[in-house]
Computed example of a mutant assay.
Amino acid sequence: MFSLTNNNAKNNNFSFEGGNLTNYGGLILFKELFEVLKLAELISKYLVTNDQRHSPLYSDTMIVIQLIFQILAGHDTDYACQELKDDAYFYQL
């Protein structure tokens, strides 16, 4: 059985066995879905940009995935998601 604390969902069973809670705990299901769909590979294959940044910390693909998670978390603008920067669980996603 998968616990939201061990990050191993290969058997597709999810349970919660206690511990610390966060408002964004349900995003783990989307993370697992994105991994099954190989979303990062699809985005990087089809997203073509004229990126002229000199030393980017994040790829365009990672920015798009972060935007998807931000919208799924209910924050539709960058300003609205300021609390995400303080949520340790969101960084793990």
Rank of each mutant, 00 (worst) to 15 (best):
T61H: 00
T22I: 05
S15D: 09
E41T: 12
N23P: 10
E35K: 05
F14N: 02
Q52I: 10
L47H: 08
F34P: 05
T61Q: 01
V48W: 07
E17V: 08
L29N: 08
N11L: 06
E35A: 04
Y46S: 06
S15W: 14
F16W: 15
S44G: 04
Y46V: 00
V64T: 09
N50A: 13
A40H: 01
N50S: 13
Q66C: 07
S59F: 05
I63S: 09
E35D: 05
Q66H: 15
Q52R: 07
I65Y: 00
V48F: 11
E17F: 13
V64E: 10
I65P: 02
K38P: 06
V64F: 12
T49E: 14
N13Y: 14
D60T: 10
D60G: 14
S59P: 05
L21S: 11
E32K: 08
Q52K: 13
A9E: 01
N8F: 12
L27T: 07
N20A: 04
G26P: 06
G26V: 05
F30R: 02
E35W: 00
Y46E: 00
V36S: 03
G25A: 15
K38L: 13
A40R: 12
L21I: 12
D60Q: 14
N13V: 15
N7A: 12
I63M: 15
L29V: 15
N8Q: 11
L39I: 13
R53D: 08
T49F: 09
H54I: 07
D51H: 10
L29G: 07
L57T: 01
Y24E: 04
F30Q: 01
E17R: 11
I28Y: 07
Y24Q: 09
V48S: 11
F34H: 03
N12Y: 12
L57A: 05
L42Q: 07
F34L: 14
N8Y: 11
N11E: 14
N23C: 11
L27F: 06
L57D: 00
L47D: 03
S44C: 00
F30T: 01
G18A: 01
L33Q: 04
N11K: 13
L21G: 01
L33V: 07
T22L: 08
H54K: 13
F16I: 08
K31L: 02
F16G: 04
N7T: 10
I28G: 01
S59D: 02
H54C: 03
V48T: 10
T22Q: 12
N12D: 13
V36T: 09
Q52F: 01
I28E: 02
L42I: 02
T61I: 00
A9K: 02
E32F: 00
K45W: 07
F16P: 10
E32H: 08
N8W: 08
V64A: 14
P56S: 09
Y58N: 05
T61C: 02
I65W: 01
L42H: 03
L21P: 02
G19Y: 11
N50Q: 11
A9T: 03
V64Y: 05
Y24A: 01
F16Q: 03
S55A: 01
S55D: 02
E35G: 01
G25L: 14
F30G: 00
R53C: 09
Q66S: 11
E35V: 05
N6C: 14
G25C: 15
P56G: 02
L47A: 12
G19V: 09
L33E: 13
T61L: 03
